[in-house]
Simulated scan of single mutants.
Amino acid sequence: MANVILADAELIPRASISQVVLDWATGTDENDFELTIEDQTAPAISRGWYFWLDGSDVGGRIIDRRVTVSAGQSTTTWIGQSWTGMLAAKILQPDANQDYLTVSGKLPDVVRGLLKRIGLDAVFTVDSSDMSTVSNWVFQNPRYVDAYTGLRSLLASCGRRLDFQAADNKIHLDITPIRTITNAIDSDLVDFKAETKHRVTNHLIGLGSQELKDRLVSHWYADAAGNVSQTQTLTGVDEVCEIYDYTSADAATLKSETQKRLQEEQIGGTVDVTLTDSAGDGLRVDDKVTASDHASGMSVTATITKRIVKIESGIMTSTFEVGQGIMKETESGR
C-alpha cells in the first residue's frame, strides 16, 4: 500500500496517509495531478501544500480544488502541478538586451543556476555527480521556452534526462543518462504495430528571410540510412524533395532548423508501441525502449513521453506513453 506524504507550503511533512485516490502524470503534456483524500485522520490542507511518495518521483504542489456534492455527500479533489508541471509553468528567457539565454559549465551547476533563475531553487535540490558539461549552449528555438521543455532539450544534447525523487523530506533532482532498454524486452512485454515508409523526404530546401535572388537558401540531404548532412547521395528516382518555408529565419537559424526538420522526417514509417507494467518498471520520461520481431525482421525504438501513476483502493499502477518510434528492418524482413 502506497503512503502519501502531505507537506505544508514550506515542504515540512505534516502527515502520512494511505487512503487516497490519485491520478498523476508527467511528460510531454499534462504534468498535473488530481488527489482525493479519503483518510478521516488527515490534517486540513490548503492550496500551496505539497504531496509525494517517498522514494519515488511521484508528487507535486497543490494549486486548486474541486468540490463535488452528490446525495448530500461532499468530496474534495485537490488539483495541482507535478514536479515537471512546476517547471513547465516557468519560462526561460534571455536577459535584457541579450538575443539568447546561453549557459556553460557542468550540468549540475547549470541546472542549479536555471532553477535559481526561475525561483524554484527552494523546492528542488540538485543532487547529481554527473560531470557532463556544455559550452555556450543556446536556448534559441524557441528563445522563450518553458523550463521543463528547455531543460529536457539541454540535457538531451548530452544524452541525459531529469530524475526526481522525494527522500529525506527533500525533492531531489538528479541528472541521469538516458536508458535504452533493449535485449530484455520480448514480444510478451511490448506490443507494436509498424508500417514502413521509405518514400520520406530526403532533400529538404530551407527558404529563409529576404526575397528573390537574395533569399537565404539551405539544402540538406538524408542518405538511405536516414543520416542527415549537406552531401547528397540519393538522386534521380530515389530523390524525394520538399520545401521548408521559414521566412523570418537568418542564415544560422535556417541552417540548424532545416537540418532538424529533415532529421525529424527520417522515421522510416509509423509505429504504435504499448508497454506492459513489467517492461516499464524503472523507466522514466525520455528513456527509450527497443523491441524486435524476429519473424519479420522489424525492430522498433520508441521514447517514453509520458508516465501516468494512479492509486485507488490502496493499489498503485503505472502506465506509459511513447512518442513516434524509429523503425529498422533487416534484409530478411524486406
Score class of each variant (00 low, 15 high):
residue 1 M to F: 06
residue 25 A to R: 01
residue 26 T to N: 11
residue 27 G to Y: 08
residue 30 E to C: 05
residue 39 D to K: 05
residue 41 T to L: 12
residue 41 T to I: 15
residue 43 P to H: 05
residue 48 G to H: 02
residue 48 G to V: 12
residue 52 W to S: 11
residue 52 W to L: 11
residue 55 G to D: 02
residue 56 S to D: 03
residue 59 G to P: 01
residue 62 I to D: 00
residue 63 I to W: 13
residue 65 R to Q: 12
residue 65 R to K: 14
residue 69 V to A: 07
residue 70 S to R: 12
residue 73 Q to T: 14
residue 81 Q to S: 02
residue 81 Q to D: 02
residue 84 T to R: 12
residue 89 A to I: 06
residue 90 K to S: 06
residue 91 I to C: 01
residue 93 Q to D: 07
residue 97 N to K: 14
residue 99 D to C: 00
residue 102 T to F: 03
residue 110 V to E: 03
residue 112 R to S: 14
residue 113 G to T: 02
residue 115 L to C: 10
residue 115 L to Q: 05
residue 123 V to Q: 06
residue 125 T to F: 03
residue 128 S to V: 07
residue 131 M to R: 06
residue 132 S to L: 13
residue 135 S to D: 14
residue 138 V to D: 09
residue 140 Q to F: 09
residue 141 N to R: 04
residue 153 S to V: 09
residue 162 L to W: 07
residue 172 H to Q: 13
residue 179 R to F: 04
residue 185 I to S: 02
residue 187 S to C: 12
residue 189 L to N: 06
residue 190 V to H: 13
residue 190 V to E: 11
residue 192 F to W: 13
residue 198 H to D: 10
residue 202 N to S: 11
residue 213 K to G: 12
residue 218 S to L: 01
residue 219 H to Y: 14
residue 219 H to I: 05
residue 221 Y to P: 01
residue 221 Y to A: 03
residue 222 A to Q: 00
residue 222 A to P: 00
residue 229 S to W: 13
residue 232 Q to E: 12
residue 232 Q to W: 09
residue 233 T to V: 14
residue 238 D to T: 11
residue 240 V to K: 02
residue 246 Y to L: 13
residue 251 A to T: 06
residue 256 S to L: 15
residue 257 E to Q: 08
residue 260 K to P: 07
residue 265 E to G: 11
residue 269 G to C: 04
residue 273 V to W: 09
residue 277 D to E: 13
residue 279 A to Y: 05
residue 280 G to A: 03
residue 282 G to T: 04
residue 288 K to C: 10
residue 295 A to E: 10
residue 305 T to G: 07
residue 306 K to V: 02
residue 324 Q to S: 08
residue 330 T to R: 15
residue 332 S to A: 14
